[in-house]
Write a protein that binds this DNA or RNA. Structure first.
Lengths: 264, 264
DNA sequence: ACAATCTGTGTACGTTATACACAGTTCTAG
DNA sequence: CTAGAACTGTGTATAACGTACACAGATTGT
């Protein structure tokens, strides 16, 4: 199982690129990576990431727990494979929306839809920059949305990463909130809770907002929350793009962001 | 233990506001909430959130595992208490920076510093809007930074939430990356990995960026990555604020964001 | 004094990831 | 054509987890 020394790829990713050698000897495998990954995804969709244990996955396939380890080095590796697998569901339209703003909006919303379809994807820790074939293809789509913006390559990557991080964060938040709400059903609104707890002296502004009744609505995560943040982020990206096209005219930006990472 | 029915607060928060009744009868407690929470925090700081088990915390205090349950209803409750406890470390300067941009920059960086000091804080799932006394105090500080911006109350909250979410997301990312890097040390840069894997036909833009050498630096998370995104988010907030002050002059905004959530 | 009520302990249960040994199967080298 | 290398799937074992539950001892209110 230690034949991953030839590539420097993180564990599991060599499988995705078909770089792990096949076996000649031994009985014919009764199982396959694809079936294992698919079973794990179905389980995660149905009962959440916490329900994905090696036993449960094996049980669903009619095999024993340990049999999975003939195909996968560890549970972490399985999670990595699950991630890239669902990334294949992200659809690339034939005709891209016109302009970077519409393009990135589509990109963000499509990704959010995926997170909603497979909520567990936002729970798996990120172990590195995208390296799976399907994740990279989706990244490529995002980059294409920025083609006419005059941004440098690493700036485009920075923008894509920021946006992707925003979507992931919001997806995670909405999931965690929903889970907590299901575990401990609440009837009081955020505004009501704040009013029972805050004193006007120590928390003047919050107290004012709470008193105004602006927070007296059911505290589920809504699409409007997502759109509010998305518009802000897009506006920020717009400022960067505008400053870059100003650069192209010879003017210099005053106190704007630099590139996302300092090269050598 | 079911005397939380009078308040509608989430479990554990009544403790923070001193709303859980004290006991008269029985032996004098040999332990206290504060000591438990502090021991748990020390453990999390030293060995990560995964090391925080009821056994390990109890062991550190010289008590048995089950004794903790006299003070805390569940491990989740303990995590909630840990969160609000460290929020008390966020320092409020006597003289606030001038202007919302400097103010929010301070606010974001201070919060990032807390995440760096206690990396596990970014791993605990968010179970609802902030309700602990210290978390709310910090929120109040953020709101104060926006006082002269002309934003509505719920808009201010939306801005603060977005910024807080950004910082949390970046902190989580940098932690996850560091953990993965420690578990599987890599010597190849992102650029090198991409070049071994990408073909120019399917991934033209990425291929170009990877070929340019712009990604050939050690892939640790850097402060520059954080600042890049922070500037973008602040720029986006700037656009919103500018549009709101234009509103004050009677003009209407064209295609900007709405308030973060729709009230009743 | 006695009962109510609390604290801390010990035991028990079900679940987790995975290390390891072993039986059976298939291909390859001689 | 045969011996053994290399593989697949199974069974067993281990240490750790959260927490339900019963119980002994301490303290207080009546």
């Amino acid at each position: 199982m230690d034949d991953t020394a030839d590539t420097a790829l993180p564990p599991g990713l060599d499988l995705l690129w078909g770089l792990r050698e096949r076996n000649r000897r031994g009985p014919r495998p009764g199982l396959s990576l694809e079936r294992i990954v698919q079973a794990a995804i179905e389980l995660a969709d149905a009962e959440g990431l916490a329900a994905v244990s090696m036993s449960r996955v094996a049980e669903r396939l009619g095999f024993t727990t340990m049999s999975l380890y003939r195909y996968v080095a560890s549970k972490d590796e399985l999670l990595t494979l699950m991630m890239d697998s669902v990334a294949g569901e992200l659809s690339v339209p034939d005709d891209l929306p016109p302009g970077w703003r519409a393009g990135l909006t589509y990109w963000a919303k499509e990704q959010l839809a995926l997170f909603r379809r497979h909520p567990w994807t936002a729970q798996i820790p990120i172990t590195g920059p995208p390296l799976g074939p399907r994740a990279l293809a989706w990244m490529e789509v995002g980059l294409r949305m920025l083609e006419d913006t005059g941004l440098a390559g690493d700036e485009k990557l920075g923008v894509i990463s920021l946006l992707s991080g925003y979507v992931r964060g919001e997806a995670q938040l909405s999931m965690d909130l929903a889970a907590a709400l299901q575990a401990h059903p609440r009837q009081a609104t955020y505004g009501e809770l704040l009013r029972t707890v805050l004193d006007a002296d120590r928390y003047p502004i919050l107290h004012g907002i709470a008193a105004s009744g602006a927070l007296d609505f059911p505290s589920e995560y809504s699409e409007a929350d997502f759109d509010f943040g998305l518009q802000l982020v897009l506006d920020g990206i717009g400022v960067l793009i505008a400053s870059r096209s100003r650069d192209a005219d010879g003017a210099d930006r005053q106190d704007g962001p630099g590139p996302p990472s300092d090269g050598p």
